[in-house]
Nucleic acid binder design. Structure first.
Lengths: 219, 219
DNA sequence: ACTGTAGCGGAACAAAGTATTCCGTTCAAC
DNA sequence: GTTGAACGGAATACTTTGTTCCGCTACAGT
């Protein structure tokens, strides 16, 4: 039976278990950072970035693939969170839409999901998550389009390509990357307004199949 | 001395030398295609795509690095060609600018230069090429801005990021990729017009140093 | 017809990178 | 003092890949 008086300083900083908890977070944070920068990075890079040994990683994740799946699932959850937050914000259709997209970009969710997909086999749970995420995002765009604040020829699947394009922008530091992305996000938003259209957008938008192909390994 | 009558069918299809010439082109074409799709692709992939053996590659290029340098130099030359063609077209400032950018995108020049840079050590000749290319492109943008057809807060270095963004768009086939890129190029162009601006673009544009950093190996 | 040889295909080789396992060590808890 | 969870990092086994090498083919020149 544990002796409470004997562990008074067992606060947030003491004990092996505390370090383990800290490592839990450090590893996930490091993995996110490393794999966002390079989806095919070696697992040793994650360990170095986290400041731990390799065995600390393997104690928590059975294999590299499981770690990637976890990261991807977290990314999808973040995406859904961004959408729900935006929908619940009570802002107008335009602000809801732009707020959602901005949040997704800031969270680097695209690199965490689509870019990581193809490096591991997706789980059924992730399929459901994706379905839910798509549903929410579609609602956000539909409501903006219904309000007439987004040009009519902008398709839902164009959003994925917008995210892909802005995610391709990177700076020397995470902070600079964020700043640059906001700069170009502003331009994309300008182009999205109905008044900005100088004509119909050429060519058909990406189909569901085209976007889904990214989830197939080795693609 | 060669006997002309004895080689009447030595047209485009006969002889070992003809095949060698065909291979010259096939290898360059294959290398372009393969490395544009994956800048870190193995050299054997190029051989397979070209339908030749590996030794056919090494007969022409001392090493992988030399091949990449050649490809990159070709890309820069194409870029310059696009700029000169646009400037000489006699079209208005807006059409000159959009025509230039569209040509650069269609030629996949960005993937051929910036994305390949960092995988080999640049040559001095490439530095001069870059200087010239920058000069031409700057003239094209300046003349559009002077004519008031491009928003004033759009910086020259923003062009590099526009190319980077649009190049990030890919489809299942080269043709589809091109089609999709034209779709999003149209949006970027819409956002570039002065009337599209809803406010000043946030954050500073990329500096020369930020863009130059891409040419440093291992970056 | 004969032969030297440029050009070639692809196996062989060596070097590098990397996921995973293993072993000895540390340290808080009892 | 003993124990065992947690750990660091070397060792292992394997894959990938740039480059070389060897034998073969087919044309050029005689």
């Amino acid at each position: 039976m544990p002796n409470p008086p004997s562990t008074p300083r067992t606060g947030p900083l003491s004990g092996r278990k505390a370090q383990a908890n800290r490592n839990d977070e450090a590893i996930l944070r490091a993995a996110r950072e490393v794999f966002v920068a390079d989806p095919s990075a070696p697992i040793s890079a994650v360990a170095k970035e986290a400041g731990v040994g390799i065995s600390a990683l393997y104690r928590r994740y059975e294999s590299k693939e499981v770690l990637l799946q976890t990261l991807c699932a977290n990314g999808l959850a973040t995406y859904i969170e961004c959408a729900e937050t935006a929908l619940a914000s009570g802002a107008g259709p335009w602000e809801t839409f732009t707020g959602f997209v901005r949040a997704v970009i800031d969270a680097d969710v695209h690199a965490l999901t689509v870019n990581l997909a193809g490096t591991f086999t997706p789980t059924p749970a992730m399929f459901e998550q994706t379905t839910h995420a798509v549903e929410l995002a579609r609602r956000i765009l539909d409501q903006a389009r219904a309000a007439g604040v987004v040009r009519a020829d902008y398709a839902f699947n164009d959003i994925a390509m917008l995210l892909e394009q802005v995610t391709a922008v990177t700076g020397a530091s995470p902070g600079r990357t964020r700043e640059l992305r906001h700069r170009y996000l502003a331009m994309h938003f300008d182009a999205l307004r109905p008044e900005a259209a100088t004509g119909e957008m050429p060519g058909p938008p990406p189909s569901d199949e085209e976007l889904g192909a990214r989830w197939i390994p080795k693609g």
